Simulated scan of single mutants.
Amino acid sequence: MTLAEASDGILAQRAADGDAAAFGVLVRRHGPFFVAFATRLTGSRADADDAVQEALITAWDKLDELADPDSVRAWMLRIVSRKATDRLRSRRPAADIEELELPTSVGGPESQTIAHSQMEALSAALGTLPDEVRTTWLLREVGGYSYDEIAEQTGVPAATVRGRLARARRALLELMEEWR
């Protein structure tokens, strides 16, 4: 079996033992998702790239602390999320969210145009949300984090997370009404 065919758990164990090639496979396998997630979270591809790079350095340094190698992707995503959140806290949000990439195999030109317009509208709507509300929504809806995980990540009580999610969903429903 080649490294590319190995499970995340095996790759994580090998990387924890110092196998840089195994870690490289993990990075190539999950890196694009991490960058997309961080881009949506920070609203900036440059900040996302920096956050992911910092997260990967941290992950490499702390791989020996990973309790469950099979959950390496979720563990690394939490690190990416923390680094992206740190970047948000250290700056004012960018005025615009970079255009999100769409898969090129989404039907014909008409459906691609509609999907592109929907993503632009969602990006614009997310850009109107306060940082903490947008971060909470992205962690839940894009990252799949639980309320408790979001609370731990953002340093607020779970009740605050619920309130922020409710505000985000209400605002996005209003702003995306024409797409329903």
Score class of each variant (00 low, 15 high):
Asp19His: 03
Phe23Cys: 02
Phe23Ile: 03
Gly24Ile: 04
Leu26Cys: 02
Leu26Lys: 01
Leu26Glu: 02
Arg29Tyr: 15
Arg29Ile: 15
His30Trp: 09
Gly31Val: 02
Pro32Cys: 12
Pro32Ser: 13
Phe33Gln: 04
Phe33Arg: 02
Phe34Ile: 01
Val35Met: 04
Phe37Trp: 02
Thr39Lys: 11
Arg40His: 08
Leu41Tyr: 01
Leu41Gly: 01
Thr42Cys: 05
Gly43Asp: 10
Gly43Pro: 03
Ser44Gln: 10
Ser44His: 10
Arg45Tyr: 10
Arg45Gln: 13
Ala46Gly: 07
Asp49Gln: 08
Asp50Gly: 02
Asp50Phe: 01
Ala51Phe: 04
Val52Trp: 00
Val52Asn: 00
Gln53Tyr: 00
Gln53Leu: 00
Gln53Val: 00
Leu56Val: 05
Thr58Asn: 01
Ala59Ser: 09
Trp60Leu: 01
Trp60Gln: 01
Asp61Ile: 03
Lys62Cys: 14
Leu63Cys: 07
Asp64His: 07
Leu66Cys: 04
Asp70Tyr: 15
Ser71Tyr: 11
Val72Ile: 08
Arg73Val: 10
Trp75Val: 12
Leu77Ser: 04
Leu77Lys: 04
Val80Gly: 00
Arg82Tyr: 03
Lys83Thr: 01
Ala84Gln: 10
Ala84Tyr: 08
Ala84Lys: 09
Asp86Gln: 07
Asp86Glu: 15
Ser90Ile: 11
Arg92Asp: 12
Asp96Pro: 06
Leu100Ser: 07
Pro103Glu: 15
Pro103Ile: 14
Pro103His: 14
Pro103Tyr: 14
Val106Pro: 08
Glu110Asp: 09
Ser111Tyr: 14
Ser111Thr: 14
Gln112Thr: 08
Gln112Lys: 12
Ile114Glu: 10
Ala115Met: 15
His116Asp: 15
His116Ser: 11
Ser117Thr: 13
Gln118Tyr: 13
Met119Asp: 14
Met119Tyr: 12
Ala121Ser: 03
Leu122Ile: 11
Ser123Gly: 12
Ser123Trp: 11
Ala124Ser: 11
Ala125Asp: 03
Ala125Glu: 05
Thr128Phe: 15
Pro130Trp: 07
Glu132Ser: 09
Glu132Leu: 09
Thr135Pro: 00
Thr136His: 13
Trp137Leu: 14
Leu139Asp: 03
